[in-house]
Structure formats: C-alpha cells, structure tokens
Amino acid sequence: MASTWILFRREFASFFATPVAYVFILIFLMLSGVFSFFIGNLYERGQADLLPFFNFHPWLYLFLVPAMAMRSWSEERKSGTIELLMTLPVTTFQVMLGKFFAAWAVLGLALLLTFPLWLTVNYLGNPDNGIIIAAYLGSWLMAGAFLAIGICMSALTKSQVVAFILAVVVCFLFVLSGSGIVLDSFKGWMPPLLLDTLASFSFLTHFESMAKGVIALNDLGYFLIVIGVWLYAGFLAVEQKKAE
C-alpha cells in the first residue's frame, strides 16, 4: 500500500512535469465547453441541468483518455526504466495501481475544473445538484474504464502511437456497441437476448442513466468490473512482455 502511494505520487508528478496533464485539462475544458454550448445547446434548451455537458463525455474520453494513457507502459519499456522498476522491491500489481490511480486523479481534476459550468446553471436556475454530483461520479467512473483500456493497450507495445490507436479502436467498440446505429442494424435478425447482451457491454448504456443522476448498482458494478478486467489484462501483458 505504501509502495503504491509512492508510485502514485511519482506518476502524478510526472504528468505535470511533462505537459501532458496541462494539455489534457486545457483541451478537455475547452472541448467540453464548446460541445455543451454550441452542439448541446445548453442555453437554448432552457433547462437548468448539465445533461448536454455529460452526454458528450464518452466521445471526449474516446480520444483524450487513450492519449493520456498511451505512455504509461510504452514509455517505460522504450526507455528501459521498466527494468529498473521491476527490480525494485515493488510488485507489478502495485505499479499498475499507481499508474492507474495517478492518471485517474488527473481525470478527476479535469472534471473538477469544469465547476464554472455548474456555477452557471446554479446561477441561471435551480438544478438538482444531487443529480449533477451523481453524473460527475458516473463520468469519472466511465473515464476510469477508458483509462484501464488505454493502460492495457500501452502495456502491449513499445510504441505510443500504436498504443493510442489500439486503445481508441477498443474504446470505440465499447462505446459504439450501445449506440443506435449498431443496435438498429442488428435488430432485425439477432435474438433480443443477444442484442441486450451486446448493448449491456456498452459504456453508453451504462452511462446514460448515470448522466441522469441514477446510480444503479449494476452500472457501478459494470464500470468497476471493466476497470478490474482491463487492468488485470494489462498486468498479464506486462509480465509477459517486459523483456522484449
């Protein structure tokens, strides 16, 4: 636990030593603002909530989170620091958790910094702040799922670019499997049970209710399981490929 905390601090500081964290936060804030106001019509809807803001999160994360996660293991392997890390008295598992939580903390920070939007809707009307907090939590959790995929893909390759592309593709599949386009095209011939299973794999399906403020146990469980499974897969990949 103590080692994980030390690793977490190093990773977290490294996000700010290289401009990754600043660039990420800046672009996240800009894009989420642009999307909610110009495409989501936050003003014109005339409702005091943040639904237009949260609805775009999966699509923002789709590209931004893999960009943030791509260096986590690729860089270690490329620069050889993985050899140093793995011969220190820490386990791969502790390193994995340190990396994940550090990046997740930066994502959380980016979300927190969107507070002016929250202030805005509170100034303009009387939103249900409980819903907004629930949606924030849901969004952070979903970001963690994107992140776990990104870290796993980064563990697979020395090249950050390859890691980024792989992560975007896999994340895209997870997002898309619940979208209308995919579900409609399968609707005619696929048994409903399979269709539901397919939809239930999607980040969108599980995030939808969370964005509306409903935190159900199965949605929570879903994201936590996704995070756990992908981090474990990444852990296996690191153990397998560290020497290459």
Partner: peptide, 11 residues
Amino acid sequence: LPEGAPAYGDM
C-alpha cells in the same frame, strides 16, 4: 544498475 542506466527523464 541496468544496461544504459535508465532513469525517468522528466525527473
């Protein structure tokens, strides 16, 4: 000391 003395460049 691993070959090439790797260290975290940003630190």
